[in-house]
Amino acid sequence: MKMKNKKILLTICLVISVLMANLVWRSLRPADIIAVHQDDDYSSVLVRNFPISDRGQINWWLKNKDMLKSRYGIPRPSSHGNFTIIFWDFGDGYKEEGKYDRLCFNDMKGPVNCIEKEAIFSVDNSPNLGTVFTVYDGGDYRFDKNGELIEIHIE
């Protein structure tokens, strides 16, 4: 093999190694809950380092739902049992409303009480569908009667 081909191969291997190390590092970081905002049966959880994969996000919810209930009091179902919890990427933190389409929280004093709308994951519960997990940039899932996680298509 020529020296030029060896350098190209070495460069490709190095880039792949860096990408793999980054992926492993990102998947091993614990998720940080920055804040929880409540509005009736709708909860917003601001997070950093949330799992990347669909399965990772659902597993995180299953592992942490009891902690969320005891520490933050969520979910808070309506009288019909409905609730929605949306996990938002906290990104660069709270900002002023200023920019179009920011999500602002009424339970905080302004002007710095808004975030960019970057939803990551949500958990919705209703009597009709049961619990549905939505992975933004992913799919919608729920458990079937046998306890198997299945992808569903919501119209």
Rank of each mutant, 00 (worst) to 15 (best):
R142I: 09
L68W: 04
R76F: 05
K63F: 03
N128A: 11
G130E: 12
G110F: 09
R102H: 12
G147H: 12
D144Q: 08
L103P: 03
G98T: 15
F143W: 08
D137N: 13
I154C: 00
L28T: 15
L103M: 08
D124P: 02
T134V: 02
D92T: 15
S53Y: 08
N49V: 11
D124A: 04
K95D: 07
I152D: 01
Y136E: 10
M3Y: 11
S78L: 02
M1H: 08
V15W: 01
F87N: 01
D124F: 01
N59D: 15
I150V: 14
M1S: 11
K95Y: 05
G56N: 06
K95G: 03
F133Y: 12
S53E: 10
V135D: 01
N49C: 07
V135G: 00
V15L: 03
C114G: 04
H80T: 14
E96F: 04
V18M: 09
A21K: 12
C13F: 07
L23C: 08
H80S: 12
L23W: 10
R55G: 02
S78W: 05
M20C: 12
V135Y: 00
D39P: 02
E155N: 11
G93R: 09
D137T: 14
N5F: 07
G56V: 04
F105L: 01
V24A: 04
K65W: 05
K4P: 06
Q57S: 08
L28P: 05
Y141Q: 07
N146H: 15
Q38D: 13
D40H: 11
Q38W: 06
Y141S: 04
L9S: 05
D89V: 07
I120N: 00
S43Y: 04
L19W: 09
Y141N: 07
E148N: 15
E118N: 14
P51R: 02
D140L: 00
M20T: 15
G147V: 14
P30C: 05
N64G: 04
V15A: 01
Y72V: 10
T84H: 02
S126Q: 08
T11M: 03
A31S: 15
D107Q: 09
H37P: 06
G56W: 02
M67L: 07
D101A: 08
G130D: 11
